[in-house]
Computed example of a mutant assay.
Amino acid sequence: MIERIKFERFTAFEKLEVPFSPGINILIGENGTGKTHILKAAYAACDITKTKGGFAEKINNVFLPSGKLIGRLVKRTAGSAKGSVEITRKIDGGKDISLRLSLSNHTTKPEKARVSGSTKAWQENPLETAYIPVKDMMANAPGFRSLYDEREIHFEEVYVDIIRKAFLPIARGPTEQPRKQLLKKLQEAMEGKVVAKNEEFFLSSKQGELEFTLLAEGYRKLGLLWMLIQNGTLLNGSVLFWDEPETNLNPKLMKAIVGILIELHRLGVQIVLSTHDYVILKEFDLQTKETDKIQFHSLYRSKTTGEIEIASTGKYLEISPNAIDDTFGSFVEREIERSMKGLGR
């Protein structure tokens, strides 16, 4: 499980440390406060434990700076500057290991960056992980993997990664009862199950097979979760990163998705997601129990320095600052103000 991630002069951050709960982690904050950057950096470190690739190269492919110049990931400043990102995780036996990437704004290629820390132990302890990006890719799956491998196309690697993970065959061995129950809940929510044929995904239901290109995106999100659970990507000890799960999702489906995520956490999956949505936040608040491990991380810019800072809490009502709640609260105030003006007419 991921314990924490530290940034120093990396992308939008001057200096930031994010402590992760082993359960559910929810990142909130206004646009430009680095939520997606946290997800991507942590995912890159986790993913290389399975692919055995290089950390610097993965970071570069996930962030995709202009010209693939990795030095552009150093926080912009006048003159020369150095930056770093360090991820710490706990492995079997309770030992903490760390992986650190150091680079300067003059570093041009990933192989010129310095990777240090527990590099050997990091690779020897694989961690199953999945990153669900904002843009849906399941409807665009046919041919995308081969196109990405054979051509220089400008796509962050998280998009091809999630397609590859969705296509993974079912893991060996029997399907545990809790996983069967989760799959059943998802099938009930989307009224069918997912099948893959010739690199296309279909929702198979009583009405027949409906291709993902004709399926509402909310159902495609449920279908993707179904595939990742069914093929064993999301099992005890794995990590799920999800960037804005509410995108193009009907609020009625949010209850089901949050419920599934909470159940995954209870099965031992660590979850890190970002959101701008009040309904998502409130569903987690209403559906979690005291025994659930949940942490809310509020990212904001300091009024004195302008730099990004973080405030973390395990209780919804203690989130501060809370840009989402503040915005919805302003609606109430504006509604009252409008009503009061009407009384004077």
Rank of each mutant, 00 (worst) to 15 (best):
T175L: 12
E217P: 00
Q270Y: 07
G232P: 15
S238H: 06
L253V: 05
D243F: 06
F202A: 01
N231W: 01
Q230R: 15
W226Q: 10
E188Y: 08
Q181I: 11
G218Q: 05
I257W: 00
I271V: 13
E244T: 07
S274C: 10
L281D: 06
V195Y: 01
E244S: 07
V272G: 04
H297V: 12
D292V: 12
L264I: 01
K185F: 04
Q187L: 00
T213V: 13
G192S: 08
E263D: 14
G173V: 06
Q207N: 15
L215C: 12
T247I: 15
S298N: 08
R220S: 05
K289W: 04
K255I: 09
I229G: 09
L261H: 02
I294V: 15
W242D: 01
K252T: 14
Q295E: 08
Q177Y: 12
T247Y: 09
T275S: 13
T175C: 13
L225A: 13
K293S: 12
E209A: 06
N231L: 00
F212G: 04
T275L: 05
E188P: 04
G223E: 01
W242H: 05
L222V: 01
V239K: 01
G173M: 07
E246A: 05
N248C: 12
I280F: 09
T247N: 15
L182N: 13
L214I: 01
K180M: 11
L228G: 07
L182V: 11
Q207L: 14
T288M: 02
L267S: 13
G223C: 06
L273N: 01
L273V: 05
Q181R: 14
L253S: 10
E244F: 05
P178C: 10
Q295M: 12
T213W: 09
K193T: 15
P245F: 00
L264R: 01
N236A: 15
N236W: 06
A171W: 04
N198F: 11
N198E: 14
T291E: 15
L210G: 00
K282A: 11
S238V: 04
N231F: 00
I294Y: 05
Y219D: 09
V272D: 03
G232A: 12
H265R: 10
K193I: 09
E246Y: 08
E200V: 03
E246I: 05
G268D: 06
R172C: 04
V272N: 05
L234A: 04
I257H: 00
L235Q: 15
F296K: 09
Q187M: 10
K255S: 13
V239A: 01
E191P: 11
L222C: 00
S274V: 09
G223M: 02
E263N: 10
L234S: 03
P174H: 12
V269F: 02
L203R: 15
I262M: 03
L215H: 12
L214M: 13
I271G: 07
Q187D: 10
Q181C: 02
V269S: 06
T291Y: 10
S298Q: 10
L261K: 01
K252G: 04
S205N: 14
G192M: 08
G223S: 02
V269A: 02
I257Q: 03
I257L: 09
L240G: 00
Y219A: 04
E176G: 15
T175G: 06
F284C: 08
R220V: 05
